[in-house]
Measured scan of single mutants.
Amino acid sequence: DENEERIRAFALYKGIDPEKARELWERGEINKDDEEKAWREYK
């Protein structure tokens, strides 16, 4: 689903483990601007 892809995109963008990215996502600790930037680059 799209959230999974967004988490993966963010992990790649930040160079972090996707599981770590998922934890940040679930806790609401992902910066929305960074997340959008990562998503645009990923697509």
Results as ranks from 00 to 15, higher is better:
Ala38Phe: 12
Glu35Arg: 06
Ala38Gln: 03
Arg8Glu: 05
Lys14Ile: 13
Asn31Lys: 08
Ala38Leu: 04
Ala9Thr: 02
Ile16Glu: 00
Tyr42Phe: 09
Lys14Met: 15
Lys43Thr: 14
Leu24Val: 03
Leu12Glu: 09
Lys43Trp: 13
Gly15Tyr: 01
Ala21Pro: 00
Phe10Glu: 02
Leu24Trp: 04
Glu2Asn: 12
Glu26Asp: 11
Glu26Pro: 00
Arg27Gly: 06
Glu26Thr: 09
Leu12Thr: 09
Glu41Cys: 12
Glu19Ile: 11
Ile16Ala: 00
Asp1Thr: 12
Arg6Asn: 04
Asp34Glu: 15
Tyr42Asn: 04
Asn31Trp: 06
Asp17Ala: 13
Ala21Gly: 01
Glu35Ala: 15
Ala11Glu: 01
Lys32Ser: 12
Glu23Gln: 10
Lys14Pro: 00
Arg6Lys: 10
Arg22Ile: 04
Lys43Arg: 12
Glu2Phe: 13
Leu24Ile: 07
Glu41Arg: 07
Arg27His: 09
Gly15Asp: 07
Ala9Arg: 07
Asp1Lys: 11
Asp33Asn: 08
Trp39Phe: 07
Glu4Asn: 08
Tyr42Met: 05
Tyr13Lys: 02
Asn31Gln: 09
Phe10Val: 12
Glu23Val: 08
Lys20Cys: 15
Asp34Pro: 01
Glu2Gly: 10
Arg40Thr: 12
Arg27Thr: 08
Asn31Asp: 14
Glu4Ile: 08
Asp34Thr: 05
Glu5Phe: 05
Leu24Tyr: 06
Glu35His: 06
Gly28Pro: 00
Glu36Met: 07
Glu36Leu: 09
Lys14Cys: 15
Lys43Gly: 13
Arg8Thr: 11
Ile7Ser: 00
Lys43Ile: 15
Lys20Trp: 12
Ile30Tyr: 11
Phe10Pro: 01
Glu19Asn: 08
Ile16Lys: 00
Glu36Val: 07
Tyr42Ser: 04
Ile30Arg: 02
Ile16Asp: 00
Lys32Gln: 11
Trp25Tyr: 14
Lys14Asn: 10
Asp33Arg: 06
Arg22Gln: 06
Tyr42His: 06
Asp17Met: 07
Leu12Pro: 00
Arg22Pro: 00
Gly28His: 06
Gly15Pro: 00
Glu2His: 11
Ala11Trp: 02
Ala38Met: 06
Arg8Met: 14
Glu23Ala: 08
Ile7Gln: 01
Tyr13Asn: 03
Glu29Arg: 04
Arg27Lys: 13
Glu23Pro: 01
Tyr13Met: 08
Tyr13Leu: 07
Gly15Met: 03
Arg27Glu: 05
Asn3Phe: 15
Glu35Lys: 08
Glu36Ala: 08
Trp39Met: 07
Gly15Trp: 00
Glu2Asp: 14
Ala11Ile: 02
Lys14Ala: 14
Asn3Ser: 14
Gly28Tyr: 03
Asp17His: 10
Asp1Trp: 13
Trp25Ser: 02
Glu41Phe: 12
Arg6Asp: 02
Glu2Arg: 10
Arg27Pro: 00
Leu24His: 03
Arg6Trp: 11
Ala11Tyr: 02
Pro18Ala: 11
Trp25Arg: 02
Trp25Lys: 03
Arg40Gln: 14
Gly15Lys: 09
Ala38Lys: 03
Asn31Glu: 10
Asp17Ser: 15
Trp39Ala: 03
Glu5Lys: 06
Ile16Gly: 00
Lys37Glu: 12
Glu36Asn: 06
Trp39Tyr: 07
Gly28Cys: 09
Ile30Trp: 10
Ala38His: 03
Pro18Asp: 10
Asn3Leu: 15
Trp25Gln: 03
Ala21Thr: 01
Ala21His: 00
Trp39Gln: 04
Glu41Ser: 09
Arg22Trp: 07
Asp17Cys: 14
Glu26Arg: 10
Lys43Asn: 12
Lys32Val: 10
Arg27Ser: 12
Glu29Thr: 05
Lys20Glu: 14
Asn31Ile: 07
Glu41Val: 09
Glu23Met: 07
Asp33Ser: 10
Arg6Ser: 03
Tyr13Arg: 01
Trp39Pro: 01
Glu41Ala: 14
Trp25Cys: 07
Glu23His: 06
Ala9His: 03
Asp34Lys: 01
Ala21Asp: 00
Ile30Val: 12
Arg27Val: 04
Asn3Trp: 15
Ile7Asn: 01
Lys14Phe: 15
Glu5Tyr: 06
Ala11Thr: 01
Arg27Leu: 10
Glu35Tyr: 15
Leu24Phe: 05
Glu35Ser: 09
Trp39Arg: 03
Lys32Ile: 11
Phe10Asn: 02
Lys37Asn: 13
Lys14Tyr: 15
Glu35Asp: 08
Leu24Cys: 09
Glu4Phe: 08
Glu36Cys: 11
Pro18Cys: 14
Arg6Met: 11
Trp25Asn: 01
Glu29His: 06
Arg22Gly: 02
Glu5Val: 05
Glu41Leu: 12
Arg40Trp: 13
Ile7Leu: 09
Tyr13Val: 03
Leu24Gly: 00
Arg22Thr: 03
Ile30Cys: 04
Lys43Pro: 05
Trp25Val: 04
Asp33Glu: 14
Lys37Phe: 09
Lys37Trp: 08
Glu19Lys: 10
Leu12Cys: 14
Asn3Ile: 15
Ala11Val: 01
Lys20Pro: 01
Asp34Asn: 03
Tyr13Ile: 05
Arg6Val: 05
Ala11Phe: 01
Leu24Asp: 01
Asp1Gln: 11
Ala38Gly: 05
Arg8Gly: 04
Leu24Ala: 07
Glu19Pro: 02
Gly15Ala: 05
Lys37Cys: 10
Arg8Ser: 05
Glu19Val: 11
Asn31Val: 06
Glu29Cys: 14
Glu36Ser: 05
Asn31Ala: 11
Lys20Asp: 12
Glu19Phe: 07
Arg27Met: 10
Arg40Lys: 14
Ala9Met: 05
Phe10Thr: 02
Arg22Lys: 12
Glu36Gln: 07
Asp33Trp: 08
Asp1Asn: 13
Asn3Lys: 15
Ile16Val: 05
Asp33His: 08
Lys43Phe: 14
Tyr13Trp: 14
Glu36Thr: 06
Arg8Pro: 00
Trp39Val: 03
Pro18His: 14
Glu2Leu: 13
Glu5Leu: 09
Glu29Pro: 02
Arg27Tyr: 04
Lys37Asp: 10
Asp17Val: 06
Arg8Cys: 13
Ala11Gly: 03
Ile7Thr: 01
Gly28Met: 05
Tyr42Ala: 04
Glu5Met: 08
Glu4Met: 08
Glu29Asp: 11
Asp1Arg: 11
Asp1Leu: 11
Arg8Ala: 10
Asp33Leu: 09
Leu12Ser: 09
Glu4Asp: 12
Tyr13Gly: 02
Asp17Gln: 08
Arg40Phe: 13
Arg40Leu: 13
Arg8Tyr: 15
Lys32Pro: 14
Asp17Gly: 07
Lys37His: 10
Arg40Pro: 03
Tyr13Ser: 03
Gly28Phe: 02
Glu35Asn: 07
Lys32Ala: 13
Gly28Lys: 04
Asp34Ala: 05
Ile7Gly: 00
Arg22Glu: 01
Gly28Thr: 02
Ala21Ser: 04
Ala21Arg: 00
Glu29Gly: 07
Glu23Asp: 10
Asn3Gln: 14
Phe10Ser: 01
Glu2Met: 14
Arg40Glu: 13
Glu2Ala: 12
Arg40Ile: 12
Glu19Arg: 09
Leu12Lys: 13
Glu2Lys: 09
Glu35Pro: 01
Asp17Thr: 15
Glu4Val: 07
Gly15Ser: 06
Glu41Pro: 03
Ala9Trp: 11
Tyr42Arg: 02
Arg22Asn: 02
Lys20Gly: 05
Asp17Trp: 03
Ala9Ser: 05
Arg27Trp: 05
Lys37Met: 12
Trp25Asp: 01
Lys32Trp: 15
Lys14Arg: 08
Trp39Leu: 06
Asn31Gly: 09
Lys20Ala: 13
Trp39Thr: 01
Lys43Gln: 13
Asn31Phe: 06
Lys20Phe: 12
Arg22Asp: 00
Glu35Gly: 06
Lys37Leu: 11
Glu29Ala: 09
Arg40Ser: 12
Glu29Asn: 05
Arg8Leu: 15
Asp1Val: 11
Lys20Ser: 11
Arg6Tyr: 07
Leu24Ser: 03
Pro18Met: 15
Glu5Asp: 11
Asn3Tyr: 15
Asp33Met: 08
Arg40Asp: 10
Lys20Gln: 13
Arg6Pro: 01
Ala38Trp: 10
Arg6Gly: 02
Leu12Arg: 11
Arg27Gln: 10
Lys20Thr: 14
Lys43Ser: 11
Lys14Ser: 11
Tyr13His: 04
Asp1Ala: 12
Trp39Lys: 03
Lys14Thr: 13
Lys37Tyr: 08
Asn31Leu: 10
Glu36Tyr: 06
Ala38Thr: 02
Tyr42Pro: 02
Tyr42Ile: 05
Leu12Val: 10
Ala11Lys: 00
Lys32Asp: 08
Gly15Phe: 01
Ile16Leu: 09
Glu4His: 06
Glu26Ser: 09
Glu2Ser: 13
Arg6Thr: 04
Ala21Lys: 00
Ile16Asn: 00
Glu41Thr: 07
Pro18Phe: 15
Arg22Ala: 06
Glu2Ile: 14
Glu19Met: 11
Ala21Leu: 02
Phe10Lys: 00
Ile16Pro: 00
Asp34Val: 04
Lys20Arg: 13
Lys37Gln: 14
Ile30Leu: 07
Arg8Val: 11
Glu23Ser: 06
Asp33Lys: 07
Gly15Gln: 08
Glu36Pro: 01
Asn31His: 10
Glu41Gln: 13
Tyr42Cys: 07
Trp25Pro: 00
Ala21Val: 09
Ala21Ile: 05
Ala21Asn: 00
